[in-house]
């Protein structure tokens, strides 16, 4: 790259700058995120309000899936209950929003912290379990937690849930599209989470997780605090899920038990696996697939007159299942895994 620069004196300076950039992971990721922010901004202003709304939806899912993919792909622990952490975040956010009227940024932080705290408690138990037993424990969590809303319906609003309807800030003007604002908030949070996760996984913590995932005994012998790192992975994943939960509540306008069903936890897992376990880019693919494909299929079904009868209303769901199976057959290592293999093949030719 330095050869492009013709003047001799400037070469070392440019090289120094580039070297600094390649040495500093944080700077590199922040720069990339800034680029991503510009791209996402340009997309959001080019889209109609409905596509902005879908963008917000994808971003919320991306955040939750990213946390899960780090937990499973890196630390090697499985969770089929991250929807419950999303509920923790979502309800925390809604409660603060309703009763304390804090600014949105603060709500997001507190919701993530509360979800992380619940994740820490759960991680303590999880560190003692592995494989199917861990999966079972997280599953129980996801199934049981929504019932709390019915048990404490005075505070949590029961089946009906709580309202969480944010409006766009006044400085953007009265006619500013609410959906665009939601897309900005959700994508902004998504970018921050990506920078943090990318750094974390490139750091000592990430290396330790990988070591533990590949061989727990070897990692322990090498002096790693295995239980500590495993709990940390749970905390990180729960914090991401909690944030995702608030973001989901923001574009949905409410939190209710039916928003955080066991099905949501399975969806998160599906997105992580489809996208490619352990890959942050994969989290984007997985979340986008999960949000956009069912909507697209319902559109097709409606325009062909399928969805107007109870008997054929299940067709979009059926087709969605087929799409998932096909993707899994075509890309056994997830979409990102498949893509990077394609890129490598092309490169070697």
């Amino acid at each position: 790259m330095a050869s492009d620069v013709s003047e001799q004196i400037e070469v070392p300076a440019a090289q120094r700058r580039l070297a600094w950039l390649s040495r500093s992971t944080l700077a590199r990721h922040v720069l990339l995120a800034a680029g991503g922010a510009v791209v996402l901004y340009l997309i959001s202003v080019g889209l109609d309000p409905y596509r902005d709304y879908l963008m917000a939806q994808v971003a919320a899912m991306v955040v939750a899936v990213a946390g899960l993919t780090v937990l499973i792909g890196l630390s090697g622990q499985i969770s089929i209950g991250n929807g419950a952490f999303m509920a923790v975040g979502g309800y925390t956010g809604a409660l603060i929003f309703m009763h304390l009227h804090w600014p949105l940024g603060l709500i997001l932080v507190v919701a993530a912290v509360v979800a992380a705290a619940v994740g820490a408690v759960f991680g303590l138990a999880a560190a003692r379990l592995r494989g199917p037993y861990l999966a079972g424990a997280t599953l129980m969590f996801a199934v049981a937690l929504p019932f709390l809303a019915n048990q404490f319906s005075g505070v949590l609003g029961g089946d009906q849930g709580l309202g969480f309807f944010i409006t766009s800030p006044a400085f953007l003007g009265v006619n500013f599209s609410l959906q665009r604002w939601q897309a900005w908030v959700n994508c902004g949070v998504g970018l921050v989470v990506f920078v943090l996760l990318a750094n974390l996984t490139a750091s000592k913590v990430g290396r330790s997780w990988r070591a533990i995932r590949d061989d727990e005994i070897a990692a322990a012998l090498a002096g790693l605090n295995v239980a500590g790192y495993k709990i940390l992975a749970f905390i990180v994943s729960a914090a991401c899920a909690g944030l995702g939960g608030v973001l989901l509540a923001i574009y949905d306008g409410t939190v209710s038990p039916s928003l955080f069903t066991f099905g949501l936890s399975i969806q998160l897992l599906t997105a992580a696996v489809l996208g490619g376990l352990g890959s942050l880019a994969g989290a984007i693919w997985g979340a986008a697939l999960l949000v956009i494909v069912p909507i697209y299929l319902q559109d097709v079904a409606v325009s062909h007159g399928f969805a107007s009868q109870a008997t054929s209303a299940a067709i979009p769901t059926l087709a969605y299942g087929v799409v998932l199976i096909v993707v899994m057959l075509a890309f056994p290592r997830g979409i990102q895994g498949g893509l990077s293999r394609l890129v490598k093949k092309k490169g070697s030719l």
Binding site: T25, R28, H29, L32, G35, G36, V39, L40, I43, G46, L47, D48, Y50, R51, L54, M55, V58, V70, G73, L74, F194, A198, N199, T201, A202, G206, R210, L277, G278, S279, L280, A281, G282, I284, W285, A288, I292, Y296, Q336, L339, S340
Partner: peptide
Amino acid sequence: MIRSHPARLAAAVAGVAALSLVAAACSSSS
């Protein structure tokens, strides 16, 4: 396995961009 490499992050951002553009192209504004 985690893709923290800049190229991969860039690919991810490009991915979102591409998907959104496809979505935008399909949109019917009337």
